[in-house]
Design a protein around this nucleic acid. Structure first.
Lengths: 343, 343
DNA sequence: TATTAGCACTCGGAAAGATTGAGTGCTAAT
DNA sequence: ATTAGCACTCAATCTTTCCGAGTGCTAATA
């Protein structure tokens, strides 16, 4: 059996109705509220076919039909090829207060959650491949040295280190010059053992202090590699009763709160994203086990500096894909420009 | 009517039973499971009295009794005067990975939530009254100046500023000396307009740049004043059905997620805490409207540097006050020593 | 051959009763 | 002052009934 034009139209009608109501859709509804001018009986026949094709299903006999994951997938693929729309209010909301990356990303998650009524997740851009811009050591007090490390994209990391004795000004200066000479412009991966060795040699009597400093730098880098994930609107998930019992939803909320599996999700989405940067996971397709009853839409944004971040929306399978996808598309564009302007 | 010894015993029995089960407690239960050796009828009479005193109530006729807020309050006050117990496992869990304040506080919230099954909240120490330790300006690239600001307790803030031209090394040095001379050791409140004026005068040709810098410092200070609040275990709240319908719990979760009203709670608890630093809010006593059905226990920890932070536990009214209070007491002690060791 | 009207059938969910049992208050006896 | 006993209440739970949305199938129609 083939999926002809009419079947497709009916499928779309079923899905979009289901997206609105969350209730199984009956044949009569379709017959009445589409411009197909077919009787419910005919629709029923077609529905039987669609069911056979695995695109829709009945939650129980004598109920209407709901889309299967496969049905959603078809719908989303269709829809993705169509045009965008709307989105302007969000921009203004977003720009209200953008003074700091962290604040901004939290804000993005919040605004997005508020506007979509789904759970959202935003990661800071990951910078593994960006270059070291600047290192500075300063003596904070008798026993503490502060290393300030700045990388492309102006991500700043501080690292406090204990030292045995206070360094003189010229010693500090020398070390600063040394560090910056060797490390400026290096990508985080470039800083290998060999380089460390060289620097330690050059440092002479401060080799042991350098040891300390590298330890600190390593920690700072490690820290920079840990992606910070901001979530918002997680409680929105409680609004969708079809996500099964409360227990399951609770599990999902816990996962979101504890960031369980979110890293996998983000890696997955960063690696697999195509030109548009948008990925849609429906039900079982999700790389996180607690989210098998949901759909997840992720988008990747990219900075000039090479940093990449992810924005994700987690919602019920009957999420408004059209709106979500177009919103995300616009949002990533927006982020791109904001970050570029700030740099 | 007076609250005699026996009534008190019965009240305690009712409350502690209710804490365990979450179900209204009947007269027969008390009669059987206490060493009072009284018949259920007698207990009933006493219960009627306790009800008249406003210490317990019936959720409906022909149900057992549950404690009122007033009853809880009595119980808590009694209990607070008694001895502590237990707590050792938590320490080890806590110390597993303490490399960074932020990480640690998150960890504290998590461990606490895990161990108590309530929602928890932890704030970083607030430093309004601590002193500025160190300021350093560095030229990051052509157009950007980085100010690193360190205050007592080693809270570090970075502030990037745009400048029109690149500063020469000796110029930077001069400014650094200037800033540190005037500002080192000053509490954040000390930095008033007059001082700013003086510094700007001294800065000579760099007055305009100084303007920029002060702007930056102001922002950084402002930022330091914003308390970061970490929450964990919020989904635990879904485990207590007596918190009313799901909607209300959802509201509570939202409040926790969006940090609504948490600042009030923290201020309140910081200001009102007595020698022990522990505060208990029962039901309506809570300074946050969404939490009228819960109880909140907060504890204040204090650093040598003068920073104060709050740890809070939010749970149902029938929370295990004894355990919670002793846990919090121990935890704050622990935090105090950890922070002191780190300084 | 495609569509439609008609009808018997299914089944979840709401409504209405029936049953249970934990708990109470009151009274009379100890 | 305490207790046994009893009638009464009421939420919770289980049963039963009923309704209607929706189906599949068949026979009639265009």
């Amino acid at each position: 059996m083939e999926l002809d034009e009419r079947k497709l139209k009916i499928l779309k009608a079923i899905i979009s109705n289901y997206l609105e109501t969350g209730e199984p859709v009956g044949s009569r509804t379709i017959s009445k509220y589409t411009d197909l001018n077919l009787s419910s009986a005919t629709i029923r026949n077609e529905m039987a076919d669609l069911e056979e094709l695995g695109l829709i299903m009945q939650p129980h006999t004598s109920a209407g039909r709901i889309p299967t994951d496969k049905g959603y997938r078809l719908y989303v693929d269709q829809m993705m090829s169509e045009k965008d729309t709307e989105m302007k209010e969000m921009k203004t909301q977003l720009l209200e207060r953008v003074d700091k990356m962290e604040t901004m990303l939290k804000q993005v998650a919040k605004v997005l959650a508020y506007n979509t009524n789904y759970a959202t997740l935003v990661t800071a851009p990951q910078y593994q491949n960006s270059k070291l811009k600047f290192i500075q050591l300063s003596q904070v007090d008798d026993s503490q040295l502060l290393a300030v490390i700045v990388v492309d994209g102006n991500v700043i990391k501080n690292k406090l280190m204990q030292v045995e004795r206070m360094l003189a000004n010229d010693e500090l200066l020398k070390l600063n010059v040394l560090l910056n000479t060797f490390l400026q412009g290096a990508s985080l991966q470039d800083i290998n053992l060999e380089m460390i060795h060289t620097i330690k040699n050059q440092a002479g009597e401060f080799a042991d202090i350098m040891e300390n400093i590298f330890q600190g730098i390593a920690e700072a880098i490690h820290e920079a590699d840990e992606v910070e994930i901001y979530t918002s609107g997680t409680t929105n998930m409680l609004k969708y009763p079809e996500l099964g019992n409360v227990e399951q939803t609770t599990k999902l909320l816990e996962a979101l709160e504890e960031r369980q599996g979110l890293n996998e999700l983000i890696d997955e989405s960063l690696n697999n994203s195509d030109a548009t940067g948008i990925q849609v996971y429906i039900g079982e397709e999700a790389p996180v086990s607690n989210m098998k009853d949901c759909s997840i839409v992720t988008a990747t944004y990219e900075l000039d500096g090479g940093g990449k971040g992810t924005i994700g929306i987690i919602g019920p399978k009957r999420m408004d894909y059209k709106k979500v996808v177009s919103t995300l598309k616009n949002l990533t564009d927006e982020l791109d420009t904001i970050f570029k302007k700030k740099e």
